[in-house]
Design a protein around this nucleic acid. Structure first.
Length: 351
DNA sequence: TCTGGGGTCCTTGGGCTG
DNA sequence: TCTGCAGCCCAAGGACCC
Protein backbone atom coordinates (compact mmCIF):
# COMPACT_ATOMS: atom_id res chain seq x y z
CA UNK A 1 0.00 0.00 0.00
CA UNK A 2 1.40 3.43 -0.92
CA UNK A 3 1.58 6.34 1.50
CA UNK A 4 -1.93 7.58 1.00
CA UNK A 5 -4.67 5.41 2.38
CA UNK A 6 -8.32 6.19 1.73
CA UNK A 7 -11.43 4.30 2.80
CA UNK A 8 -14.92 4.54 1.34
CA UNK A 9 -17.71 3.46 3.64
CA UNK A 10 -21.10 2.92 2.05
CA UNK A 11 -24.18 1.99 4.07
CA UNK A 12 -26.01 -1.06 2.64
CA UNK A 13 -29.46 -0.18 1.18
CA UNK A 14 -29.52 2.64 3.70
CA UNK A 15 -33.10 3.98 3.57
CA UNK A 16 -34.61 0.49 3.49
CA UNK A 17 -32.36 -0.68 6.33
CA UNK A 18 -33.41 2.30 8.44
CA UNK A 19 -37.07 1.47 7.74
CA UNK A 20 -36.51 -2.16 8.74
CA UNK A 21 -35.30 -1.03 12.15
CA UNK A 22 -38.75 0.30 12.93
CA UNK A 23 -40.63 -2.31 10.87
CA UNK A 24 -38.78 -5.51 11.84
CA UNK A 25 -41.77 -7.55 10.65
CA UNK A 26 -40.72 -6.64 7.07
CA UNK A 27 -37.26 -8.23 7.34
CA UNK A 28 -36.57 -10.77 4.60
CA UNK A 29 -39.32 -9.34 2.40
CA UNK A 30 -38.97 -7.24 -0.75
CA UNK A 31 -39.23 -3.63 0.45
CA UNK A 32 -39.06 -0.54 -1.75
CA UNK A 33 -38.75 3.06 -0.63
CA UNK A 34 -40.23 5.30 -3.30
CA UNK A 35 -42.38 8.38 -3.77
CA UNK A 36 -46.12 8.01 -3.97
CA UNK A 37 -47.10 9.99 -7.07
CA UNK A 38 -47.76 8.52 -10.50
CA UNK A 39 -44.33 9.70 -11.62
CA UNK A 40 -42.37 8.58 -8.58
CA UNK A 41 -39.10 6.70 -8.86
CA UNK A 42 -37.49 4.14 -6.56
CA UNK A 43 -35.15 5.64 -3.98
CA UNK A 44 -33.88 2.36 -2.52
CA UNK A 45 -34.84 -1.29 -2.84
CA UNK A 46 -34.03 -4.08 -0.38
CA UNK A 47 -31.77 -6.85 -1.66
CA UNK A 48 -34.85 -9.14 -1.74
CA UNK A 49 -36.57 -6.68 -4.11
CA UNK A 50 -33.42 -6.32 -6.22
CA UNK A 51 -33.67 -10.03 -7.04
CA UNK A 52 -36.85 -9.16 -8.97
CA UNK A 53 -35.02 -6.57 -11.03
CA UNK A 54 -36.04 -3.58 -8.94
CA UNK A 55 -33.37 -0.89 -8.63
CA UNK A 56 -32.73 2.70 -7.69
CA UNK A 57 -33.97 5.47 -10.00
CA UNK A 58 -36.41 3.09 -11.69
CA UNK A 59 -39.97 4.35 -12.17
CA UNK A 60 -42.06 3.09 -9.25
CA UNK A 61 -44.73 1.94 -11.72
CA UNK A 62 -42.23 -0.44 -13.31
CA UNK A 63 -41.04 -1.63 -9.89
CA UNK A 64 -44.65 -2.52 -9.00
CA UNK A 65 -44.99 -4.53 -12.17
CA UNK A 66 -41.71 -6.37 -11.63
CA UNK A 67 -42.41 -7.11 -8.01
CA UNK A 68 -46.14 -6.79 -7.19
CA UNK A 69 -45.67 -8.41 -3.79
CA UNK A 70 -43.14 -5.77 -2.67
CA UNK A 71 -44.01 -3.49 0.23
CA UNK A 72 -43.76 0.15 -0.86
CA UNK A 73 -42.87 2.75 1.77
CA UNK A 74 -42.87 6.53 1.33
CA UNK A 75 -39.49 8.11 2.10
CA UNK A 76 -39.05 9.81 5.46
CA UNK A 77 -35.97 11.98 5.03
CA UNK A 78 -35.93 13.59 8.48
CA UNK A 79 -35.76 10.07 9.92
CA UNK A 80 -32.94 9.06 7.52
CA UNK A 81 -31.01 12.23 8.35
CA UNK A 82 -31.20 11.41 12.04
CA UNK A 83 -29.99 7.85 11.39
CA UNK A 84 -27.20 9.24 9.21
CA UNK A 85 -26.08 11.51 12.05
CA UNK A 86 -25.87 8.49 14.39
CA UNK A 87 -23.54 6.80 11.92
CA UNK A 88 -21.44 9.91 11.22
CA UNK A 89 -20.94 10.50 14.90
CA UNK A 90 -19.46 7.04 15.33
CA UNK A 91 -17.18 7.52 12.32
CA UNK A 92 -15.91 10.89 13.55
CA UNK A 93 -14.97 9.37 16.87
CA UNK A 94 -12.41 7.21 15.03
CA UNK A 95 -11.16 9.33 12.11
CA UNK A 96 -10.44 13.06 11.82
CA UNK A 97 -10.70 13.64 8.08
CA UNK A 98 -14.17 12.62 6.96
CA UNK A 99 -15.80 13.67 3.69
CA UNK A 100 -19.55 13.16 3.79
CA UNK A 101 -21.14 12.36 0.41
CA UNK A 102 -24.90 12.22 0.81
CA UNK A 103 -26.57 10.59 3.79
CA UNK A 104 -25.17 7.12 3.35
CA UNK A 105 -21.54 7.31 2.32
CA UNK A 106 -18.25 8.84 3.39
CA UNK A 107 -14.62 8.95 2.41
CA UNK A 108 -12.07 8.73 5.21
CA UNK A 109 -8.42 9.68 5.02
CA UNK A 110 -6.56 6.95 6.87
CA UNK A 111 -3.06 8.03 5.83
CA UNK A 112 -0.65 7.80 8.70
CA UNK A 113 -2.80 5.48 10.80
CA UNK A 114 -0.79 2.50 12.08
CA UNK A 115 -3.56 -0.05 11.34
CA UNK A 116 -6.10 1.36 8.88
CA UNK A 117 -7.84 -1.97 8.22
CA UNK A 118 -8.31 -2.68 11.90
CA UNK A 119 -9.66 0.84 12.32
CA UNK A 120 -12.29 0.30 9.62
CA UNK A 121 -13.25 -3.08 11.09
CA UNK A 122 -13.82 -1.36 14.43
CA UNK A 123 -15.95 1.36 12.82
CA UNK A 124 -18.13 -1.13 10.92
CA UNK A 125 -18.62 -3.27 14.04
CA UNK A 126 -19.48 -0.28 16.17
CA UNK A 127 -22.00 0.97 13.61
CA UNK A 128 -23.65 -2.45 13.53
CA UNK A 129 -23.75 -2.80 17.31
CA UNK A 130 -24.94 0.73 18.00
CA UNK A 131 -27.41 1.21 15.14
CA UNK A 132 -28.18 -2.25 13.76
CA UNK A 133 -27.14 -1.01 10.31
CA UNK A 134 -24.53 -2.61 8.08
CA UNK A 135 -21.97 -0.99 5.81
CA UNK A 136 -19.56 -1.99 3.07
CA UNK A 137 -15.99 -0.75 3.03
CA UNK A 138 -13.37 -0.29 0.35
CA UNK A 139 -9.78 0.66 1.13
CA UNK A 140 -7.19 1.82 -1.38
CA UNK A 141 -4.54 4.38 -2.25
CA UNK A 142 -7.10 6.88 -3.53
CA UNK A 143 -10.82 7.68 -3.48
CA UNK A 144 -11.48 5.99 -6.82
CA UNK A 145 -10.04 2.62 -5.80
CA UNK A 146 -11.76 2.86 -2.41
CA UNK A 147 -15.13 3.66 -3.97
CA UNK A 148 -15.09 0.87 -6.54
CA UNK A 149 -13.78 -1.57 -3.93
CA UNK A 150 -16.61 -0.77 -1.51
CA UNK A 151 -19.15 -1.57 -4.23
CA UNK A 152 -17.48 -4.82 -5.25
CA UNK A 153 -18.86 -7.12 -2.56
CA UNK A 154 -21.98 -5.42 -1.23
CA UNK A 155 -23.62 -5.97 1.21
CA UNK A 156 -21.26 -6.40 4.19
CA UNK A 157 -18.26 -6.04 1.87
CA UNK A 158 -14.72 -5.34 3.04
CA UNK A 159 -12.30 -5.07 0.13
CA UNK A 160 -8.72 -3.80 0.27
CA UNK A 161 -6.89 -3.16 -3.02
CA UNK A 162 -3.77 -1.50 -4.35
CA UNK A 163 -4.10 0.44 -7.60
CA UNK A 164 -2.61 -2.37 -9.69
CA UNK A 165 -4.83 -4.95 -7.97
CA UNK A 166 -7.84 -2.81 -8.84
CA UNK A 167 -6.72 -2.62 -12.49
CA UNK A 168 -6.38 -6.39 -12.58
CA UNK A 169 -9.58 -7.22 -10.71
CA UNK A 170 -11.85 -4.93 -12.72
CA UNK A 171 -10.16 -5.27 -16.14
CA UNK A 172 -13.06 -7.35 -17.49
CA UNK A 173 -15.77 -5.21 -15.83
CA UNK A 174 -17.88 -2.79 -17.85
CA UNK A 175 -16.67 0.83 -17.96
CA UNK A 176 -19.89 1.88 -16.20
CA UNK A 177 -18.49 0.50 -12.99
CA UNK A 178 -16.28 3.57 -12.71
CA UNK A 179 -17.91 6.57 -11.05
CA UNK A 180 -17.92 9.38 -13.59
CA UNK A 181 -18.65 7.07 -16.52
CA UNK A 182 -22.41 7.06 -16.93
CA UNK A 183 -24.76 5.70 -19.53
CA UNK A 184 -24.01 8.23 -22.25
CA UNK A 185 -20.24 7.97 -22.03
CA UNK A 186 -20.48 4.19 -21.88
CA UNK A 187 -22.60 4.20 -25.02
CA UNK A 188 -20.05 6.32 -26.87
CA UNK A 189 -17.24 4.04 -25.69
CA UNK A 190 -19.12 1.00 -26.95
CA UNK A 191 -19.45 2.49 -30.41
CA UNK A 192 -15.64 2.59 -30.44
CA UNK A 193 -15.51 -1.07 -29.43
CA UNK A 194 -14.41 -0.25 -25.90
CA UNK A 195 -16.47 -2.34 -23.48
CA UNK A 196 -14.32 -3.05 -20.45
CA UNK A 197 -12.19 -1.06 -18.07
CA UNK A 198 -9.12 -2.94 -19.25
CA UNK A 199 -9.86 -2.07 -22.89
CA UNK A 200 -10.34 1.58 -21.95
CA UNK A 201 -7.06 1.67 -20.04
CA UNK A 202 -5.05 0.27 -22.94
CA UNK A 203 -6.91 1.70 -25.95
CA UNK A 204 -4.77 3.88 -28.25
CA UNK A 205 -5.61 7.51 -27.53
CA UNK A 206 -6.33 8.07 -31.26
CA UNK A 207 -9.18 5.57 -31.04
CA UNK A 208 -10.86 7.51 -28.22
CA UNK A 209 -10.20 10.84 -29.91
CA UNK A 210 -12.79 9.82 -32.52
CA UNK A 211 -15.49 10.46 -29.93
CA UNK A 212 -13.91 12.52 -27.13
CA UNK A 213 -11.80 15.65 -26.71
CA UNK A 214 -8.12 15.27 -25.87
CA UNK A 215 -8.81 16.34 -22.32
CA UNK A 216 -11.69 13.90 -21.83
CA UNK A 217 -9.63 11.10 -23.39
CA UNK A 218 -6.88 11.66 -20.84
CA UNK A 219 -9.40 11.84 -18.04
CA UNK A 220 -11.21 8.62 -19.01
CA UNK A 221 -8.00 6.66 -19.41
CA UNK A 222 -6.64 7.80 -16.06
CA UNK A 223 -9.93 6.70 -14.47
CA UNK A 224 -9.60 3.28 -16.13
CA UNK A 225 -6.09 3.02 -14.67
CA UNK A 226 -7.52 3.92 -11.27
CA UNK A 227 -5.36 7.03 -11.06
CA UNK A 228 -6.94 9.75 -8.94
CA UNK A 229 -5.37 12.38 -6.73
CA UNK A 230 -8.45 14.08 -5.29
CA UNK A 231 -8.08 14.83 -1.60
CA UNK A 232 -10.54 13.79 1.07
CA UNK A 233 -12.06 17.18 1.82
CA UNK A 234 -14.11 17.94 4.89
CA UNK A 235 -15.49 21.26 3.70
CA UNK A 236 -17.74 21.22 0.69
CA UNK A 237 -18.72 24.67 -0.48
CA UNK A 238 -22.35 25.03 -1.42
CA UNK A 239 -22.67 26.69 -4.83
CA UNK A 240 -26.39 26.74 -5.42
CA UNK A 241 -29.72 25.80 -3.94
CA UNK A 242 -32.91 24.97 -5.78
CA UNK A 243 -36.48 23.77 -5.47
CA UNK A 244 -38.31 21.92 -8.22
CA UNK A 245 -41.57 20.07 -8.67
CA UNK A 246 -42.66 17.43 -11.16
CA UNK A 247 -46.39 17.66 -11.75
CA UNK A 248 -48.57 14.57 -11.54
CA UNK A 249 -50.11 15.77 -14.81
CA UNK A 250 -48.51 18.23 -17.23
CA UNK A 251 -49.49 21.87 -16.77
CA UNK A 252 -50.29 24.06 -19.75
CA UNK A 253 -51.86 27.15 -18.16
CA UNK A 254 -49.61 30.13 -17.51
CA UNK A 255 -51.40 31.23 -14.33
CA UNK A 256 -50.97 27.81 -12.75
CA UNK A 257 -47.29 27.74 -13.62
CA UNK A 258 -46.80 31.20 -12.14
CA UNK A 259 -48.57 30.15 -8.93
CA UNK A 260 -46.34 27.10 -8.58
CA UNK A 261 -43.27 29.20 -9.29
CA UNK A 262 -44.28 31.61 -6.55
CA UNK A 263 -44.63 28.73 -4.11
CA UNK A 264 -41.23 27.28 -5.04
CA UNK A 265 -39.62 30.70 -4.69
CA UNK A 266 -41.11 31.10 -1.20
CA UNK A 267 -39.82 27.66 -0.15
CA UNK A 268 -36.36 28.36 -1.53
CA UNK A 269 -36.09 31.84 -0.01
CA UNK A 270 -37.21 30.59 3.40
CA UNK A 271 -34.37 28.06 3.31
CA UNK A 272 -31.82 30.62 2.07
CA UNK A 273 -32.80 33.14 4.73
CA UNK A 274 -32.66 30.51 7.46
CA UNK A 275 -29.07 29.76 6.41
CA UNK A 276 -28.15 33.42 5.97
CA UNK A 277 -27.33 32.87 2.31
CA UNK A 278 -27.92 35.05 -0.75
CA UNK A 279 -27.10 34.53 -4.40
CA UNK A 280 -26.43 36.67 -7.46
CA UNK A 281 -27.77 34.30 -10.11
CA UNK A 282 -31.45 33.45 -10.31
CA UNK A 283 -32.51 30.69 -12.69
CA UNK A 284 -35.50 28.66 -13.70
CA UNK A 285 -35.72 25.11 -15.00
CA UNK A 286 -38.52 23.91 -17.22
CA UNK A 287 -39.01 20.33 -18.36
CA UNK A 288 -41.59 19.98 -21.12
CA UNK A 289 -43.87 17.03 -21.79
CA UNK A 290 -41.34 15.68 -24.33
CA UNK A 291 -38.83 15.50 -21.46
CA UNK A 292 -36.64 18.20 -22.98
CA UNK A 293 -35.15 20.35 -20.21
CA UNK A 294 -34.54 24.08 -20.54
CA UNK A 295 -32.84 26.46 -18.16
CA UNK A 296 -32.77 30.24 -18.12
CA UNK A 297 -30.69 32.31 -15.75
CA UNK A 298 -29.85 35.91 -14.99
CA UNK A 299 -26.94 37.22 -12.96
CA UNK A 300 -27.65 40.36 -10.97
CA UNK A 301 -25.38 43.05 -9.59
CA UNK A 302 -26.45 42.27 -6.06
CA UNK A 303 -27.08 39.10 -4.09
CA UNK A 304 -30.71 38.37 -3.29
CA UNK A 305 -32.69 36.01 -1.10
CA UNK A 306 -36.15 37.53 -0.68
CA UNK A 307 -39.26 36.14 -2.37
CA UNK A 308 -39.85 39.58 -3.92
CA UNK A 309 -36.42 39.80 -5.57
CA UNK A 310 -36.01 36.15 -6.54
CA UNK A 311 -39.67 35.89 -7.57
CA UNK A 312 -39.52 38.94 -9.84
CA UNK A 313 -36.54 37.62 -11.80
CA UNK A 314 -37.86 34.06 -11.92
CA UNK A 315 -41.22 35.24 -13.21
CA UNK A 316 -39.56 37.40 -15.88
CA UNK A 317 -37.47 34.43 -17.00
CA UNK A 318 -40.53 32.19 -17.18
CA UNK A 319 -42.50 34.75 -19.18
CA UNK A 320 -39.58 35.35 -21.56
CA UNK A 321 -39.16 31.61 -22.06
CA UNK A 322 -42.85 31.07 -22.68
CA UNK A 323 -43.09 27.25 -22.70
CA UNK A 324 -44.10 26.02 -26.13
CA UNK A 325 -45.58 22.76 -24.79
CA UNK A 326 -47.20 21.52 -21.59
CA UNK A 327 -44.82 21.59 -18.64
CA UNK A 328 -43.84 18.50 -16.70
CA UNK A 329 -41.44 20.05 -14.19
CA UNK A 330 -40.84 23.56 -12.96
CA UNK A 331 -37.92 24.63 -10.78
CA UNK A 332 -36.17 27.69 -9.42
CA UNK A 333 -32.53 28.05 -8.45
CA UNK A 334 -30.31 30.60 -6.78
CA UNK A 335 -26.58 30.27 -7.50
CA UNK A 336 -23.38 32.17 -6.86
CA UNK A 337 -24.18 31.88 -3.18
CA UNK A 338 -22.45 34.00 -0.60
CA UNK A 339 -23.01 33.37 3.05
CA UNK A 340 -23.13 36.08 5.64
CA UNK A 341 -20.79 34.17 7.89
CA UNK A 342 -22.70 30.93 7.62
CA UNK A 343 -20.63 28.44 5.67
CA UNK A 344 -22.25 25.07 5.32
CA UNK A 345 -20.01 22.52 6.91
CA UNK A 346 -21.14 19.52 4.93
CA UNK A 347 -23.28 19.15 1.88
CA UNK A 348 -25.21 16.36 3.57
CA UNK A 349 -26.25 18.55 6.45
CA UNK A 350 -27.82 21.01 4.07
CA UNK A 351 -29.97 18.40 2.34
C1' DT B 1 -40.12 1.35 -18.44
C1' DC B 2 -40.69 6.21 -19.03
C1' DT B 3 -37.99 8.51 -16.28
C1' DG B 4 -37.71 12.50 -8.59
C1' DG B 5 -35.20 16.03 -6.25
C1' DG B 6 -31.16 18.17 -5.07
C1' DG B 7 -26.88 18.94 -6.21
C1' DT B 8 -21.82 19.44 -8.92
C1' DC B 9 -18.96 19.77 -12.81
C1' DC B 10 -17.80 20.10 -17.74
C1' DT B 11 -18.23 21.88 -22.44
C1' DT B 12 -19.35 25.15 -25.77
C1' DG B 13 -20.09 29.55 -27.41
C1' DG B 14 -20.76 34.52 -27.06
C1' DG B 15 -19.65 39.06 -25.24
C1' DC B 16 -16.62 42.13 -22.99
C1' DT B 17 -12.11 44.07 -21.91
C1' DG B 18 -7.25 45.18 -21.91
C1' DT C 1 -8.59 53.52 -35.20
C1' DC C 2 -8.63 48.78 -36.29
C1' DT C 3 -7.46 43.93 -35.59
C1' DG C 4 -6.08 39.83 -33.25
C1' DC C 5 -5.68 37.58 -29.08
C1' DA C 6 -6.03 35.99 -24.38
C1' DG C 7 -8.57 35.79 -20.33
C1' DC C 8 -12.65 36.19 -17.94
C1' DC C 9 -17.56 35.93 -17.04
C1' DC C 10 -21.94 34.32 -18.20
C1' DA C 11 -25.60 31.36 -20.19
C1' DA C 12 -27.30 27.03 -21.63
C1' DG C 13 -27.24 22.24 -22.03
C1' DG C 14 -25.80 17.88 -20.67
C1' DA C 15 -23.73 14.15 -17.91
C1' DC C 16 -23.35 12.40 -13.68
C1' DC C 17 -23.92 11.41 -8.67
C1' DC C 18 -26.61 10.07 -4.27
Amino acid sequence: MSERCVAHLDMDAFYVSVELRRHPELRGKPVVVSGTGPRAVVTTASYEARRFGVGSAMPASLARRRCPQAIFLAPDFPHYRAASEEVMEIIRRHVDTVEVVGLDEVYLDLSGLPAPKACMRRIVNEIRTATGLTASVGIGPNKLVAKVASDAEKPHGFVVLTRSQACERFAESPCRLIPGIGGKTDERLQTLGVRTIGQLATAPAETLRAAFSARTTLHLQSLARFEHDGAVTQQRKVISESRERTFDADVATVTELELVLERLVRELCTALQAQGRRGRTVGIKVRLDDFSTHTRARTLNVSVNTPADVGRVALELLREFGPSRPVRLLGVRVAGLSSGGVETEQLALAL
